[in-house]
Design a protein around this nucleic acid. Sequence first.
DNA 1: AACAGGGGCAACCGCCCTAGC
DNA 2: CGCTAGGGCGGTTGCCCCTGT
Length: 259
Amino acid sequence: MGRSPCCEKAHTNKGAWTKEEDQRLISYIRAHGEGCWRSLPKAAGLLRCGKSCRLRWINYLRPDLKRGNFTDDEDELIIKLHSLLGNKWSLIAGRLPGRTDNEIKNYWNTHIKRKLLSRGLDPQTHRRIGESFSDMLNSSPREISATPEPEIFAISAKPEPNFLAISSPNNNNRNPVDSVEEANRSGMSEEEQIYPEINLELSISLPFQSQPPPTNLDESKNQTTICLCCHLGFQSNGSCTCQRIPNSYDLRYYRPMDC
DNA sequence: AACAGGGGCAACCGCCCTAGC
DNA sequence: CGCTAGGGCGGTTGCCCCTGT
């Protein structure tokens, strides 16, 4: 039993949108709001797939969209966010008001990739081109942390496969443990330490946590582990199964698989 | 002026996630 | 608890325009 198609393809238009179609879509959404995309085309009198309408609205017709070229500041912000988040275009778009995920994705593929290559940086890893795997392992946690791939996270994460480790002292020459202690003292997250100007708070409606998240600190080994649930403010919902993770060197967010 | 090639971008495709039943 | 519909997302495609020859 397959999934039913989102629309009857035989009776839908494809390709570029006409001005009249745009106008119909805008008028309908102004009157009825967004949502229920599947039934929208029929209700609005459009011979389009619901998904197509959604895409057209989100990427092109929405009134709050910022059209025009990306600024240098936006460029740099996208690069930094990509180094932290990888190809999570919607998350990146969430930090750039008026820009869409599709727009940023296209811009990345056409402009920024080239820009990074011209700087001698690999657009996916944000590391110097030609840097070997062993170089990476021998590199400071700062360099490792800039890699978005989960398996790279796992390298610094030791045996547990379900780890999300974010390690990143600002200064490559400093002892990572010092950085952790400093981070703890300052109350800054590790991401904030990498790019202090970027607010990576991605939650929309979670209540503000006035108290610092609980941490399990093993004084004797200088270990600090923060459960991601706790960090995000979910620790009171009963699903959090915090546990201490032995590690030798840096601040980690620990996310148990079923947490 | 005509043509070819490449780049940019809008739109589509197919998979994934989740809420609702 | 499993199934389905609806919506979201990342990757890919294809068309149009610009530039170089």
